[in-house]
Structures are given as C-alpha cells and as structure tokens.
C-alpha cells in the first residue's frame, strides 16, 4: 500500500518530467516557455507534498514571473516563435540524446546503489510548516548569514552587470553632433 505522500510526489514528479520533456518537443516557443513554467510549478507542488511548504510556495511564486519573462525573450529572439514554419532548431542530436540518457541513467543508478542513511519514516517526524519558517529564519540570520548576504550581493551585481551589458552603446556620430 503506497502512502498519499508517495502518490502525490510521484504524480507531481511525473507531471514535472512530462512538462519538462514538452519544452523541447513542441515547436511553439510560447508553449515551450509555459511548459517549463508548469514543470517548475509541478516541482513546487512536489515540494509541498514533501512538507517543505515555504520552499514549495516560493518555487511556485518565483517561477511564474521568471518563466513568463523567459517567454517574451523566446518570442523576441527566436526566428519562428509561433512554430508554424516547422524549423528544426537543434543540432548534434545523437550526441545530445546519448548524453541526456546517460546522465539520467547514471544519476538513477547512483540513487539506487548508494547507501542512504535511515531518515524519518512518518509524516509527523518533520517539523510543522510554521516551525520550519521560523527555523529557516534562524538559519538565515545565524550560521548562514554570510552565505545569504553573498547571495543578495550576487543578485545585485548580476542586475547591474546585466543592465550594463544590455543598454545600447552610445551612437558615436550622434553624440558628436549634439
């Protein structure tokens, strides 16, 4: 008899994999970006099934905006965003499929072969969602404070760097005239 937790984890896990595969199968870029979004949302739901409520909700929240922004860049930069022209946008197919399958099988084999230590078996052995949020807060402002600050500074640096790269270069001739 499988537990509800296993059932929901498997359900959302399979949903995440199916949507993840759909990203590279469909030829419409919008569908591709939103498939990635729903793959990530399914993962968030899987986190919820694994009782990591804060992380699950955070994943669901962040990915919605992130993947929608992905969608507009897809439409901007692809030659055939609607997927009506049946263009093939891939190369080195055989190598990629081999590498992908090898990576998946290799990770799965390690997952089976490894000697995992015994963890908690029942649902109640994990802290409640409220206690988790509290413990995460203590962790953030305690032992992991430096790491967290580094993450914040990294995002700031990335924002500035990305903006600096993306703004158009000054038009020399026009700048001369004015």
């Amino acid at each position: 008899m499988i537990s509800w937790q296993t059932f929901f984890m498997a359900f959302f896990g399979i949903a995440a994999i199916v949507f993840g595969a759909a990203v590279f199968v469909t030829s419409s870029m919008m569908r591709s970006a939103l498939a990635l979004l729903f793959s990530q949302t399914a993962l968030g739901a899987m986190f919820l099934a694994m009782q990591a409520e804060f992380l699950g909700v955070l994943q669901i929240m962040m990915m919605a905006t992130e993947m929608s922004i992905m969608a507009i860049f897809m439409v901007m930069f692809m030659m055939d965003p609607g997927g009506l022209g049946d263009m093939d946008m891939s190369h080195q197919k055989r190598l990629s499929i081999l590498a992908g399958v090898a990576a998946a099988v290799f990770s799965a084999v390690i997952a089976i072969a490894a000697h995992w230590p015994a963890g908690p078996e029942t649902l109640s052995e994990v802290a409640s969602a409220g206690a988790q949020v509290r413990a995460l807060g203590v962790e953030l402002l305690g032992r992991s404070m430096l790491i967290f600050e580094t993450a914040g500074v990294t995002i700031l640096t990335a924002m500035i760097a990305a903006t600096a790269v993306a703004i158009p270069p000054l038009q020399r001739s026009k700048a001369h005239e004015s």
Partner: peptide
Amino acid sequence: TGAALFGIGVYGALS
C-alpha cells in the same frame, strides 16, 4: 524525478 529532469536538461542544453 531529479535524474529525469537532469537528463532532459542536459539534452536540451546540448541540442
């Protein structure tokens, strides 16, 4: 699930 997503991702990044 993680292994499958990793595999799909590797395929996508290479192809």
